[in-house]
Design a protein around this nucleic acid. Structure first.
Length: 595
RNA sequence: GGGGGCGUGGUGAAGUCUGGAGUUCACGCCGGCCUGUCAAGCCGGAGGUCGCGGGUUCAAAUCCCGUCGCUCCCGCCA
């Protein structure tokens, strides 16, 4: 990036070897230390920071310019690189051994006083940062995140190209399919009253590509889902989407390991543990209480049912008799007071459990607990053995409906044991997801999507609640990085899935008829995946949310404070589209709401 | 749709629980001094509708109600 019309050297690249060179650099005034005579400038460009020294005895012509400089002025400096004298080298700076003795200095572009300081120490309100994102992006944190993101995508493209994948673009104005997440709609001018939808994923198009003979497809795809925001969710996000013909699950998982390895090498310079461990969905739920376990730490959930199966301890026995489950975790040496332990009970109740029993292992193996006196010797011994308890450990036990026990213990496990940062990277495959889940209303809904191949069509039809699919997730440090599956390539099977989901053949024909038709022309078996790039980069960069790795993200209410989107439009624009705003909305506008 | 947190000169915070004069700290900004600093230093100065609206009170940044914005979570995210 070095030589351009305005410069011949990158500021951040200068080292002791460069001493004696005459250079021209261009960048921003990161800091100014004005001693009245000699003035030091930290000049920052995209590559880093270098110190510029302006000494009026050496460069009298620069004197006027130098005292007028302010933070973030865009300047150009010509001068000789030299070793810093005596003890003045700065070991904290990559360029700290050298400085540029300014012979001339010009201001390319002055800067207004800043709305906030660009140093890394101060924590600025995020709305303010987003309003001035172009300034925020000059900070090293943001620069590093943009670079990491670029390296991630480059490593992905390299990996896919090396393996013979074809990058294909799919449309972003598509037909709405009222399934899954809420669609973003785009009105059509040429067909008034009709709408495009923005894609939630390129799913059906990449399957059409498989039918079309594209042996291996990939795309860095922008996807849109009009649902509420979270730290790890924006309404538009980016995925590495890929699919392979004549593929099964193992082909996908092997490719995912290759991709993850290339990305971690490129961004971190390290390698993750391989092969990635695998858990089935059932194992993950049983041992970690979640389908996206963080396996960087133990504290696994243990089934205590056998210990209490023949028990007289009525509280637990009653639950077991009622189809419930009794499970626990060894939370380790928490060092909590009595009130701290009771706080865990309150937390468990907040999470939906009826209660929580804590036990502290004393010297000699005794258990200190509100329920200690109700436990038999066998039960105590069983608890210690099953939970691998040592003196000082805190054991947490919940008896409730299996779903509740899993959810609450899984969450407590994370709150008590999850490491704060992401220095360690623990990838994990979760496989054998159920085909369906039950909605709160009791209806069947696809857990992944309705194009996922069930392991057995018979099971799917006869025991839909237990049926397993050929779907799998990639998990990193407790975050779901993405999902994939072996797809249905048989139109009959596809029709049966719709049928089990309660979609009539007429409705299926209306919504997906074009796709069912396509499946009838010699569809190759195929499988694929999509990796969430925002989440991956956020974890690699140790960022707490994905906004930090998205250059221009939206706020939780879907707004962009910089450009003011979303915004109202002119009436003639609506008129072109055959659209009007409902009177009650216009009334709200008139009252000055929602401006 | 629901629950929690936050909102105080340009920035970040303290003050709010327990009402009593816009008080404090750090940074930035403006002016002055200063020739080896690197978060430079020293002296001086300007700068606030305590998010907004209403209520209680002799008195509100502080208590109450509402509202807006930002954020975390639940729902939702095939």
């Amino acid at each position: 990036m070095t030589t351009t019309e305005y410069r011949d050297t990158s500021a951040g690249a200068l080292r002791a070897d460069d001493a004696g060179r005459e250079v021209t650099v261009a960048g921003w005034v990161a800091r100014r230390r004005d001693h009245g005579g000699v003035v030091f400038l930290d000049l920052r460009d995209a590559t880093g920071v270098v110190q510029v020294v302006v000494n009026p005895e050496e460069a009298p012509a620069s004197e006027d310019a130098i005292h007028g400089l302010r933070s973030e002025y865009c300047i150009r400096v010509r001068g000789a690189v030299r070793l810093r004298p005596g003890e003045t080298a700065n070991p904290d700076l990559p360029t700290g051994e050298v400085e540029i003795a300014a012979a001339s200095l010009d201001v390319l572009s002055p800067s207004s006083a800043l709305p906030f300081q660009l140093d890394e120490r101060s924590d600025v309100d995020e709305g303010r940062r987003l309003q001035y994102r172009y300034l925020d992006l000059r900070r090293s944190r943001m620069t590093a995140n943009l670079r990491a993101r670029s390296k991630t995508v480059a490593a992905m493209r390299r990996t896919m190209e090396e393996r013979g994948f074809l990058e294909v673009e799919t449309p972003t104005l598509i037909a709405s399919t009222p399934e899954g997440a809420r669609d973003f709609l785009v009105p059509s001018r040429l067909r008034p009253g009709q709408f495009y939808a923005l894609p939630q994923s390129p799913q059906l198009f990449k399957q059409l590509l498989m039918i079309g003979g594209v042996d291996r497809y990939y795309q860095i795809a922008r996807c849109y889902r009009d649902e509420d925001f979270r730290a790890d969710r924006q309404v538009e996000f980016t995925q590495l989407d890929f699919e392979g013909a004549f593929w099964g699950q193992e082909d996908v998982l092997a490719t995912l390991e290759d991709i993850a390895l290339a990305v971690v090498r490129a961004v971190r310079g390290t390698e993750p543990v391989r092969p990635f461990p695998r858990l089935t969905y059932a194992e993950a739920m049983a041992r970690y209480g979640t389908d996206k376990p963080d396996i960087r730490f133990g504290m696994e959930i243990a089934d205590l049912g056998p210990i209490f199966a023949a028990t007289e301890f009525k509280a637990f026995a009653g639950v077991l008799g009622d189809g419930g489950s009794v499970r626990g975790i060894n939370a380790g040496k928490l060092g909590l007071s009595r009130s701290g332990l009771d706080g865990l009970v309150a937390r468990a109740q907040e999470l939906g459990a009826k209660g929580l029993v804590w036990m502290v292992v004393e010297d000699g193996g005794e258990l200190r607990s509100p329920v200690a006196k109700f436990l038999s010797d066998d039960e105590r011994a069983g608890l210690r053995a099953t939970l691998d308890a040592e003196t000082g450990d805190v054991l947490l036990v919940i008896a409730d409906a299996p779903r509740v026990v899993s959810a609450v213990l899984g969450q407590l496990r994370l709150e008590l044991g999850q490491p704060a940062g992401h220095d360690e990277l623990a990838f994990l495959f979760v496989t054998d997801f159920p085909v369906f889940e039950r909605t709160p209303g009791g209806d069947l809904a696809p857990l992944h999507h309705p194009f996922t191949s069930p392991v057995s069509v018979e099971d799917m039809r006869e025991r839909p609640d237990e049926a397993i699919s050929k779907a799998y997730d990639l998990v990193l440090n407790g975050s779901e990085l993405g999902s994939g599956s072996v797809r249905i390539h048989d139109p009959e099977v596809q029709a049966q899935v719709f049928e089990v989901l309660g979609i009539t053949s007429e409705a299926a024909e209306r919504r997906f008829g074009w796709f069912l038709e396509a499946l009838r022309y010699g569809t190759p078996p195929h499988a694929g995946f999509a990796i969430g790039i925002d989440r991956l980069v956020a974890i690699l960069q140790n960022e707490p949310n994905i906004r930090e790795v998205i250059p221009f993200p939206k706020t939780q209410t879907g707004a962009d404070p910089l450009t003011g989107s979303p915004s109202r439009v002119e009436d003639y624009q609506l008129s072109d589209l055959g659209i009007d705003i409902r009177p009650e909305i216009r009334a709200m506008w008139a009252e000055g709401e929602d401006v």
